[in-house]
Simulated scan of single mutants.
Amino acid sequence: MTSALAARPRTPALDRDVALRLAETEYDRVAALLASLSTQDWSRPTDCPAWDVRAMAAHMLGMAEMSASMRESMRQVKAAQARGGVFIDELTGLQVDERADMAPAAIAARYAEVAPKAVKARRRMPWILRRQKMPAAQLVNGREEAWTLGFLSDVIMTRDPWMHRTDIARATGAPMVLTAEHDGVLVDDVVREWFERLGSPVRLRLTGPAGGSWGESGPELEFDAVEFCRALSGRGTAPLDTEVPF
C-alpha cells in the first residue's frame, strides 16, 4: 500500500444496501446460533483464550447494543477510555464485564431483541457522519491507519459477529450456516481488501459455499473460505502474513 493510500481514511467498498443486508442476515444467524446452544456449550473455551462462549456472546451483545444506540455507543466509548490501556481491549473487556451476571438464556434473548434495532440504527447513520474519520488510528499489519465511521459501521460491525460466529461454531460443534448469497459476499469483500493490502499478484481459490476464485497471475493458493478469513484475523494456521481487520 502506498503512503498516500495509507494516509487516506479507509471507506467501505461494499454498496450500502448490500452492507445493510449482510448486517441484518448476520445478526439473524448469530441470534439463531445463540438460541440453539445447550447449557454445556456456554462454558466451552473459544479460540480467543480469555473468553469462553458466554463471554464471547456477552461481547457480541455489547457490540450490538453499541450499534443500536448512539447514546449507548458514547457511554461505552467514554467508559472504555476511562479504564486506560488499549482502547479496543478495554471496550471489549467492558462489554464482557458489564454482562458478567447475565444468564446465557438472557444474553441470547437480548441479542435477538436488540439486533433489529442495531440494523435500523446503522441504516439511519447520515452520510456526513459516515464520512468522518474515527478519532483513533487502527493498527493493521504493524502500521497505523485511519478508518471512516462508515467503514466501521458498514464493514467491521458485520465482520466481527461473523468471525465470532465461526469461533462459537468451532467451540461447540454447532453447524456453521454458510451461503453464497450472504457469506460469499462477505468473503469476497474480505478477499478484495486482502488483495489491496497484499500488493502483489496471486491466484486464490477458496473452497466451500462461501468460496470462489480471484486473481489471474502469480502463485496459486487454495484454502477453505472460512479458514482463510480466520487466518487473516490471526486465527488458524494458514501461511498468510497479510492481516485484514475483523
Score class of each variant (00 low, 15 high):
E243I: 12
G142D: 07
R16K: 09
D97L: 07
G85F: 10
E24S: 15
S213H: 06
L129A: 12
V18H: 03
H182D: 11
L232V: 06
G84E: 07
E193G: 03
L149R: 15
V191H: 07
N141D: 12
P116A: 02
P209F: 07
A115S: 13
L198A: 11
S233L: 09
R8V: 06
W127N: 13
G236S: 03
V114W: 04
A169C: 15
V86S: 09
V244S: 08
R122L: 07
V119S: 12
A171Y: 01
F195E: 15
R143D: 10
T166K: 00
R29Y: 02
A6Y: 01
Q81E: 12
P209R: 15
P161N: 04
P45S: 05
A23P: 01
A57L: 04
A55C: 02
G211F: 00
L129S: 10
S233N: 14
Q40C: 02
M60E: 13
S67T: 03
E113P: 04
G184L: 10
L5H: 09
Y111K: 02
M125S: 04
R131M: 09
V226W: 03
A118E: 01
H59D: 09
A136I: 09
R75S: 13
T148A: 06
D160R: 07
G199S: 09
S73W: 06
R75W: 05
D28W: 01
E181L: 15
G212R: 01
L232P: 05
A6M: 12
S233V: 00
T158K: 04
D17P: 01
A82I: 00
A115I: 01
V185P: 01
T2Q: 10
A210Q: 01
R29S: 08
A82G: 15
P175I: 03
Q76Y: 04
R203K: 14
W51G: 09
V187T: 11
V140D: 02
I156E: 07
L61C: 06
A121S: 15
E65D: 11
P201M: 10
A103V: 09
L186W: 03
E193L: 14
V191R: 07
R123I: 03
D188M: 03
M102Q: 12
W194L: 08
K117A: 08
E72M: 08
R123H: 11
A55F: 00
V86E: 08
L22C: 10
L206Y: 00
M56K: 00
L186E: 05
A231K: 05
A106C: 05
A19D: 07
R143Q: 14
R71P: 00
V191D: 10
V30R: 00
E90I: 00
R235L: 08
E98I: 12
A80F: 09
Q138T: 11
Q76R: 15
G208C: 09
F246H: 12
L240G: 05
S153D: 13
S69H: 11
A174N: 06
F246M: 11
E193H: 11
D17H: 13
F195G: 02
S217C: 01
T46F: 00
V30M: 14
V155G: 11
A118I: 06
V77Y: 07
V202T: 12
A80Y: 07
A231N: 03
G142C: 08
T237R: 10
F87C: 04
G211T: 02
A115V: 00
A171K: 03
F246R: 07
M176A: 12
R8T: 15
